[in-house]
């Protein structure tokens, strides 16, 4: 019964209503990530577990009657390592996840703008970085026209200001 082909999501509902969009999605399903990705992911999680285990031993293990700070993290870390190695074997033929595509750069760009927002937030408040982020996402990542990108960005930042600063009086860093 095992198969190396990507698994098609089953139609979820026995009744006909509402299941079409899922099938539509399934038709476009990207190629599965494959065995290398599985191995890489397992090595990363195993590495996290290994690092955790080493650090946990350094914290001191104590005894069952007086458990030390490291005992529980050690147990959990070992579990992470064992499970990761199991998965490396079980999933060696790949099958889940999906490959990176050239559109993955868009996600990376989005992430970069978010980090920019975090860096600027404490320095100049949220308004200007939020406006820029919104413009970039709408125009460049989303393919809106300049007109609607500018219009909606200004509206969005204005609304956020009204809610978080005006109505709720939170302490979000704001310039105005």
């Amino acid at each position: 019964m095992r198969t190396t082909e990507p698994v098609e999501p089953e139609p979820t509902e026995p009744e006909p209503t509402g299941s079409e969009p899922v099938e539509a999605l399934a038709d476009d399903a990207p190629p599965a990530a494959g065995p290398v990705a599985n191995l890489a992911a397992c090595l990363v999680t195993a590495g996290v577990g290994g690092a955790g285990a080493v650090a946990a031993v350094g914290l001191g293990l104590g005894t069952p009657a007086q458990p030390g700070a490291g005992l529980w993290p050690l147990a959990v870390s070992v579990a992470v390592v064992v499970l990761s190695l199991t998965q490396a074997v079980v999933g060696r033929r790949g099958g889940d996840g999906e490959k990176f595509s050239r559109y993955s750069w868009l996600s990376l760009a989005g992430l970069a703008t978010l980090l920019g927002l975090v860096a600027l937030l404490p320095v100049i408040g949220f308004e200007i970085p939020a406006l820029l982020l919104s413009l970039v996402w709408m125009k460049f990542l989303g393919g809106e026209s300049w007109r609607s990108a500018v219009l909606y960005s200004v509206l969005v930042v204005g609304a956020l200001y009204a809610v978080f600063v005006g109505a709720l009086g939170t302490n979000v860093p704001h310039l105005f």
Binding site: L114, V118, L133, S134, W137, G142, E144, F164, N171, V172
Partner: peptide, 30 residues
Amino acid sequence: AAILAPVTALITMIGAYTINNSVFDVLLVV
């Protein structure tokens, strides 16, 4: 979606700040 995405992202970021008045929490979200 092109418009909803940045709106949701921004609400998430600012909302994260308000939990504990902390920029660190916003970084954690990212």
